[in-house]
Amino acid sequence: MLLSVKNLQVAYGRIKALHGIDFNIAEGEIVTIIGANGAGKSSTLRAVSRLVPSGKETEMTFAGKDLLKYPPEKVVSELGISHVPEGRRLFGNLTVLENLKLAAFARKDKDGVEKDIERVFGIFSRLDERKTQKAGTMSGGEQQMLAVGRAFISARRLMLLDEPSMGLSPLLMKRVFISLKEINQSEGTTILLVEQNARLALKFAQRGYVLENGNMVLHGDSADLLDNEDVKKAYLGG
């Protein structure tokens, strides 16, 4: 297992967001966590990124290393886990190119970074056209492309994606997901996707977990989950 999470607990003050969930991901896999608003999906990703502290009994290992020993910036630069956060969170005061360069902050391979920036521009040509523009002035779809591109440059052993479909037209959504699949196949990047759009997520991923009120209630192959009556009723609209 590339990432293995046991008994993950997250609390914000007295409010518990995750009550001890388990999940794991193998190298090269695309896995999704689906669930309603407030189920704890974003908290799961933030805990893996170490942006929020996890409970005392939580165990997380990544490629055989104890994830909990790494501060958030080293989760990116040393373990190779990147994170497209909820709401994209681009640096709107920086240009498109600066956003991409900042994502390479900890990387020492200058040539590699330049090649990667070119690759991002190859995948999302709109970004190339707008590279000197401030990120905050772009449309939602373009911003999502930049958010994915930025994560791709920062690290790509595992990419955590928090609702990349949010606010995108179906056409743009399709484009972003096709690009993600390309990255998965060409780079061997493992992907953990969190989505409210369950149908889209399960079609994209090989396996899925269902999160409900901070508990994992179900997991299995995407095809099985798409056929599951409970999942259909609760998340796929009948």
């Binding site: 910036e73 080293k74 969170r89 920062s154």
Partner: peptide, 9 residues
Amino acid sequence: LVIPLMGVS
């Protein structure tokens, strides 16, 4: 808050 996600301390 998202600065660490760029690998920046």
